[in-house]
Amino acid sequence: MQKFAFFAFNGNLMCFQHVLLNVLDLDEKGHETKVIIEGEAVTLIQKLEESNNKLYFEAKEKGLIDCICRACSAKLGVLKYNQSTEIPLKGDMSGHPSMKSYIEAGFEIITL
């Protein structure tokens, strides 16, 4: 079993859909996967929640979405909404989730 941490930075919905597709596929095949939502991607949460996006909710229900960046959420004006989603907000590196903790836990980092 391999471990993959997908750091999603891109605020394009189609790009994020592909992150979700890959995370769900790898999970189904027995790999440990996590999504860390960073950068402009933090602005997608409300759209995904309100549109009842199937892939997003499947990943969320399986616990594959590890966290949302606290600093980016604040800077981009979506902190309050993102706090309401039951997905943890992290910011152990100047307000952003640190790749170091995932690397130390044995995850291969993939950025999109």
Rank of each mutant, 00 (worst) to 15 (best):
M1K: 14
G39E: 12
A71M: 11
Q83R: 15
I37W: 07
A8Q: 05
R70T: 10
K54E: 14
A59K: 04
N52P: 06
F16I: 05
Q83H: 08
N22Q: 04
S84H: 13
I68R: 03
E40V: 05
I65Y: 01
L76K: 02
V23K: 03
G77M: 00
S98A: 15
M99P: 06
L21V: 11
N82Y: 03
V23C: 06
F6A: 01
Q83P: 04
L55T: 11
F57T: 00
E104Q: 15
S98L: 09
N53Q: 12
I109T: 10
G11M: 10
V42T: 07
E108T: 15
N52R: 05
L112Y: 10
A59L: 07
K29S: 08
K62Y: 14
M1H: 11
A59V: 07
S94P: 00
E86N: 15
F107E: 04
M14Q: 15
L112T: 00
L21F: 12
K90D: 05
I110T: 12
C72Q: 00
G77D: 06
D66Y: 15
F16C: 06
N10D: 15
N10E: 15
A41N: 04
F4P: 01
P97G: 04
L89C: 12
I65A: 02
E50Q: 14
E50W: 03
E32F: 15
G63K: 14
S73H: 11
K29T: 12
S51K: 04
E104S: 13
V35K: 05
K75M: 09
E40D: 14
G95H: 03
D92M: 09
F107V: 13
E32G: 14
L64A: 06
C72S: 11
Q46Y: 07
I110D: 02
K75V: 07
I45L: 08
S51V: 00
E108Y: 13
T33M: 10
N10Q: 14
G95E: 05
V42Y: 01
V35R: 04
N52T: 05
K60R: 06
S73K: 07
S51C: 00
M99E: 12
I110A: 09
L21P: 03
K34G: 01
S98F: 06
K3G: 09
I109M: 07
F57S: 00
C67K: 15
G106E: 06
K100C: 11
F6V: 08
C67Q: 14
F107H: 08
L112V: 03
Y102S: 05
F107N: 02
F6D: 02
C69V: 13
S94A: 12
A71I: 02
T43R: 12
Y81S: 02
T111G: 11
K62S: 09
K100R: 14
S51L: 06
E40P: 02
H31T: 03
K3Y: 09
V78M: 01
K80R: 11
H96K: 10
E28G: 05
P97D: 02
E61R: 13
L20G: 03
K34M: 03
N52K: 13
S101A: 11
V23E: 03
K80A: 14
S73I: 12
L79A: 10
F107I: 14
Q46M: 06
M93N: 13
V42F: 01
H96S: 09
S84D: 08
M99A: 13
L76Y: 03
F57V: 00
K29R: 13
A8M: 05
V19G: 00
C72V: 05
K29C: 05
E28Y: 14
T111L: 12
P88A: 07
S73A: 13
